[in-house]
Amino acid sequence: MVASIALPRMLRIGAGAVTEAADVASTLGVTRPLLVTDPFMVVSGTADLVLNALKQGGLDAALFSETVPDPTTDSLAAGVAAIAHHQADALIGLGGGSPIDTAKALALLSKQGGHMRDYKAPKVNLGPVLPVIAIPTTSGSGSEATQFTVITDSANSEKMLCIGLGFLPAAAIIDFELTESMPARLTADTGVDALCHAIEAYVSRKANPFSDSMAMAAITAIGRNLRRVYADGHDRDAREAMMLASLEAGIAFSNASVTLIHGMSRPIGGNFQVAHGLSNAMLLPAVTAFSVGGAEDRYAQVARALGVASDATADAHASLALVDEVTQLCADLHVPTPEAHGISREKWDALTPVMAQQALASGSPANNPVVPTADDIESLYAKIFS
């Protein structure tokens, strides 16, 4: 088997790395970057921190702060206009997965035109694109290191997976100090998102030795640190470990693909405006239980990495211990069911067939150890509701 591995050209990792944004940009030949972020990053002062670092480094930087959670096709128009107005030669995505995904989409649209629905999977997108420098402020999406972006079609609420090297950032700045103000709920949801990335990459039918190494490192670190950082957001060691694990998990799934959890998660987010990490967490226990029989040895290794099984534990028992562990983890992190989150059962049931078809159309379920039918997916949606 030959594995094709793609990574950002440059990673700058460590406390205070964000202050080196100008050096990273200059190394890439950038002179007129546009900082793409959201209003919270402006209010919190983080956007100014980055802008000041860029300007002090001699760069002509401008700000676009109109990104929205779970970006939509309608939300991109203002960003394309801002790029043209500033004559930007690069984009810097600052924030969680949504601003970074927005920057990736804008980087392609500003060069190729058209609409994002023209670029959704299974189309593989290359270039030309503006270079993107990603600066994550959460420990979860891994978008800073992936060749994917997810944009919701405003016309029909479909969360469109868009793939290809055109969406891979040229560089990423990984500074865990930017995550220290994350509230507990966001810490939990983004942390489970990273865990899903790592587990799915490891059990994916497209897994390879390189992605395996990244996935297992991430799983081990998340197992040791997610509960810690949820309990104490000021635990710097745990914050740093989770930030690195998020990056490793992103690298893993970018080079191996996600599976059924993400396939089912995107329709929940698109149709019910549930945060991506939270919808993953809602699905993690049930989808794991559904899938373990297809790759018992792989799920057993995940259990061992999480510390809930030993080398002496038989794979069959270890894989079941994993189901118990992810169930307990979601309970410890107070992950709500869709019903507890306030979603109407009537609307959930009505949209379940549509969501099942959207999940299958994304392609991700085909990478699952047990490839589901539409009926299987509908049953899983029914199971997790309450």
Rank of each mutant, 00 (worst) to 15 (best):
A350P: 06
M242D: 10
S379H: 12
F176D: 13
D74L: 10
R236I: 11
A238V: 10
P369N: 07
P285F: 01
F210E: 12
K123P: 11
R236K: 12
I343S: 02
P285E: 07
A321W: 00
A25D: 08
H334F: 10
Y119F: 15
D311F: 08
S139P: 04
A215S: 15
V326Y: 01
G114V: 11
P209Q: 09
A218M: 07
A3C: 13
T327R: 02
V302F: 02
V36C: 06
A3Q: 15
A340D: 11
S254F: 06
M243G: 09
R32A: 10
A82Q: 12
Q328A: 14
A207P: 07
A171D: 12
D376C: 07
P353H: 00
G164V: 09
R9V: 13
L108T: 05
N125H: 01
Q147G: 14
A321S: 14
S265L: 09
I343T: 02
L284V: 08
A217W: 05
F210V: 15
L226H: 05
S319Q: 11
G166W: 00
M10W: 13
V370I: 14
V2D: 13
T46M: 12
A382V: 07
R345G: 04
L165G: 12
L126E: 14
I83Q: 03
F40W: 13
L284A: 04
I199H: 01
S279A: 15
A134Q: 05
A309K: 00
Q87R: 15
D60Q: 13
S98L: 05
A6K: 14
A207F: 06
L59V: 06
I384R: 02
F40A: 12
A361Q: 05
V323T: 09
E378K: 11
L49W: 03
H115C: 11
A201Y: 02
T27F: 03
S254C: 07
A361N: 12
T352L: 03
N255Q: 04
P267D: 06
V292R: 10
G97T: 06
D153V: 00
L351G: 02
V2H: 14
G277P: 03
N52F: 04
Y299L: 10
L130K: 02
M1W: 05
I173T: 05
T46C: 03
I251T: 01
A134E: 10
A198M: 05
E378A: 13
Q358H: 11
V287A: 04
A289K: 11
Q328W: 11
M282N: 04
L11T: 07
L360H: 01
G140V: 08
P338C: 05
M1Y: 06
P372V: 07
S319I: 10
E296T: 15
V308Y: 01
R117I: 15
V68G: 00
A15P: 13
L54V: 07
A170Y: 08
A6F: 14
G269S: 14
P71E: 09
R345Y: 12
V203G: 01
A281S: 13
V354Y: 01
F272C: 07
A145I: 10
D315P: 13
A134H: 00
Q147H: 14
M214D: 11
D189W: 10
L109P: 02
E296F: 00
V203R: 01
E158P: 02
M282G: 02
N225L: 08
A90N: 08
M1S: 15
A81M: 14
P369F: 11
G57M: 01
A215L: 05
E20R: 08
